[in-house]
Design a binder for these strands. Sequence first.
DNA 1: TCATTATATAAGTATATACTTATATACTCA
DNA 2: TGAGTATATAAGTATATACTTATATAATGA
Lengths: 115, 115
Amino acid sequence: MIKDSALETVEVAQALKLLGDKTRLTIMGLLNVRECCVCEFVEMIQMSQPSVSQHLRKLRDARLVKETRKGQWIYYSINQEYEGYPLVKDILRYVKGAEEQLEALEKAGLSIRCT
Amino acid sequence: MIKDSALETVEVAQALKLLGDKTRLTIMGLLNVRECCVCEFVEMIQMSQPSVSQHLRKLRDARLVKETRKGQWIYYSINQEYEGYPLVKDILRYVKGAEEQLEALEKAGLSIRCT
DNA sequence: TCATTATATAAGTATATACTTATATACTCA
DNA sequence: TGAGTATATAAGTATATACTTATATAATGA
């Protein structure tokens, strides 16, 4: 057991439940590379904007991610102040594909369309 | 990213979803200390036998645990051959309380009642 | 100020999930 | 072989979840 972990079993379970959804895990995998705005997720994970927003809200409510408004856009990033941050980072070591996906997006010039 | 991981994002998500339930996470926490039979789980997590069996079935179907019949009892243990075993072990480092719970159970002589 | 773009929220719906109770199966031992 | 114990499974139900479509809010820039 990690002694310094302030997390109760319920809290670990809550984090795992949130990450236990393919869409949210993919979102977190992308955020593990760099911060992203909502429209980038919509593009990359091929999902409706409301659906993406709802997933982001759950992640934000549980403090796994944080948001920063930059003008018209809201950028999401992994919240390093979340108590379960070390757990989340450990788990994300097992999630692949994010780098490749983001490269493809940048080649396609989509990050430009979004800025 | 862990390069040797054979797990696709969906598979990681599936494992996390299974662990993202308080009952199942507790079960895995106990199994991380030693193998247990069903009646021990029933006693320790204060849950009905069918409910425990159903959770164990899900864990077994996904290969996170394996079962061994020993006469009248079926002992469950963590399946080291599961592709996500390293992930599971990593996660269980964050789950506390199992040792204390098992000690209490042994003091109460419950493992005897079960053997 | 108005049109446009980005995002959030609300409401509805279908499916998944985690229990419950009742019953079946499997093993042990007298 | 039959009673007792351990476990699994089936069926029912209430709640949670992840979408959908429609609409609201917020910022930008002409």
